[in-house]
């Protein structure tokens, strides 16, 4: 087991607001980690900081041995595509979708590496196996789908590529409990051979027993097992 994501001393925020405070987080290959916290305690900002979408950030973020953290204070999103290419699959919160693309094209847009672009048909099939309801809608523009279906597309888009770290930001937010559970099941089906997954969620009960460990997030800090027992052992 190796560390696939290692965050050290990460601080991030927007303007004069500091949301993430000196955060450390280590995630091993093959792990499924749940991050639980209330609204406004920095879950989304943590994801955005990893992706380089915050206004400013400091600290080191290492994905699979590659440093992607940088100290910068302007141009949110300038380097996001480069960061994403290091192997980040972000399944964002809410309606970050392309209204005019069809479901098929939308899924394809997630395949950003040349290999995954080549294998996109096969991948698409796999995802449609997981999300049965999308099969019928494959040529429908995403803008016409319902909220749950949109979320499925958005998660499916994240699953299209062979990412190293999957980050799902509140996959069940605003959905009927049953649909939300189904989506979570789908997330758990992703094969994590050389990768890891972080799921941010407000509802602890949904994650309990399904992920390897649950980390609490409070006021920009992590509470609980910020690194798995294994790496703690290595440290001592």
């Amino acid at each position: 087991m190796s560390k696939i994501l290692e965050i050290k001393g990460l601080s991030a925020g927007y303007g004069s607001l500091r949301v993430i405070h000196d955060l450390d987080l280590i995630i091993e290959t093959g792990e499924r980690v749940g991050i639980v916290g209330l609204n406004g305690h920095g879950k989304t900002t943590l994801f955005y900081a990893i992706a380089g979408l915050t206004h400013w950030q400091r600290g080191s973020i290492i994905i699979d041995g590659k440093q992607i953290g940088r100290t910068r204070s302007q141009g949110p999103g300038r380097y996001t595509h480069l960061v994403v290419k290091e192997g980040l699959a972000i399944m964002p919160q809410g309606d970050e979708i392309f209204h005019g693309l069809t479901v098929e094209e939308h899924l394809d847009s997630g395949a950003f590496t040349p290999e995954s672009w080549k294998n996109r048909k096969q991948k698409r099939e796999e995802i449609l196996e997981i999300f049965e309801p999308l099969k019928k809608l494959i040529h429908t523009p995403v803008g016409r789908l319902s909220g749950g279906e949109r979320r499925m597309v958005s998660i499916g888009r994240g699953m299209m590529s062979e990412a190293k770290v999957y980050m799902a930001d509140e996959p069940t937010l605003g959905l009927a409990p049953k649909i939300g559970k189904g989506l979570l099941e789908a997330l758990l089906k992703i094969d994590l051979k050389n990768s890891a997954m972080i799921i941010a969620e407000q509802n602890v009960a949904l994650l309990e027993g399904k992920v390897d460990r649950i980390i609490g997030m409070h006021a920009g800090k992590l509470k609980g097992e910020a690194s798995s027992s294994l790496s703690m052992g290595l440290k001592n």
Binding site: G13, G15, R18, G220, K221
Partner: peptide, 15 residues
């Protein structure tokens, strides 16, 4: 603002 917000350290137990 940016400089100021980074100057807040992990000094006390409280944020």
């Amino acid at each position: 603002n940016e400089v100021r917000s980074t100057r807040v350290e992990r000094g006390g137990e409280m944020l």
